[in-house]
Design a protein around this nucleic acid. Structure first.
Lengths: 147, 147
DNA sequence: CAGCATCTTGACGTTAACGTAAAGGGAAGA
DNA sequence: TCTTCCCTTTACGTTAACGTCAAGATGCTG
């Protein structure tokens, strides 16, 4: 059986870039607003692994999507170690039965944690909103749902 | 005009504790699962300021609620500096007109940031869920809303 | 009074996530 | 060829948020 590129999902839904075949470090830095130092650091930490053309790093579309995932992970408060763990889970797209169960479990744990975080955020928003209302002198405006 | 306790809102909606008049550091440590070192650190950083009985710290109900706020702030990814800033906003419950506008603005900024975080979290949950579905071999189950 | 628990204040150590030089390679244009 | 960019590695510095002793005060209890 020839290796027909396993077609693993790309991670992260970001704007595609069919115009470019690959990216330089400066491209990604500009696009995502991070420093080259940070990208190299993520590489040292095993979070991303671009190919090389000589010494220069060449980032593929998958690398780019992976970076997007990393940065979002950071925004929602995960450490790089946690993010790497999650990424590793993705990369075990193979057959071992037991590993698959573990992977699923970990994912579910993550999801639960994220749900809890959402609740904390909602609570925080609520309180800030109440405070704003109060300071504006409004008569207590019951938590307005403008969602 | 005698100082009739300004009646500033207590922050954070947590289980009240009418049974106790105040708390020791070990009480709060046990209740919130943090170390005494952390509480003292928050104090050094100006996040909380319990009274003293001799040397020992005596935490009021407001101190307790404030701690709850601090910890939630941490859970949603704010730095202690950011949290202090938000707390400081609360404490400007006075009259200066201009300051009020600034306070409100800051609060709104915070709220916006939190909303963005929620979106990131939702996206992360979505992807994790999709991955779980995929690894479970389900046929792509359109993002099931079991909410 | 001795011992123990619980508090306190230093003060130095640690980890994560980069920042910040320093020193140099390689290609492209004047 | 010289200069200019953009890339590289190596390595020490920094900040946040505590951890971890060390050494001492205070108060209850046997």
């Amino acid at each position: 059986m020839p290796a027909t590129e396993p077609s693993i999902p790309t991670l992260a839904a970001i704007e595609p870039r069919p115009d470019r075949e690959h990216f330089l470090i400066s491209d990604l830095c500009a696009e995502f607003g991070v420093t080259a130092r940070a990208l190299r650091f993520y590489e040292d930490e095993g979070l991303i692994a671009p190919k090389r053309k000589g010494l220069a790093r060449i980032y593929s579309h998958r690398d780019r999507a992976r970076l997007a995932w990393i940065l979002r992970g950071k925004r929602v408060g995960f450490s790089l170690a946690e993010i790497r763990e999650m990424i590793d889970l993705y990369d075990i797209g193979d057959d071992r039965r037991v590993q698959r169960q573990v992977t699923i479990l970990r994912c579910r744990e993550r999801i639960e944690k994220l749900e809890e975080q959402k609740q904390d955020i909602d609570a925080a928003i609520d309180e800030l909103q109440q405070f704003v209302d109060l300071i504006e002198g409004l008569p207590h405006s019951a938590t307005d749902k403008r969602n």
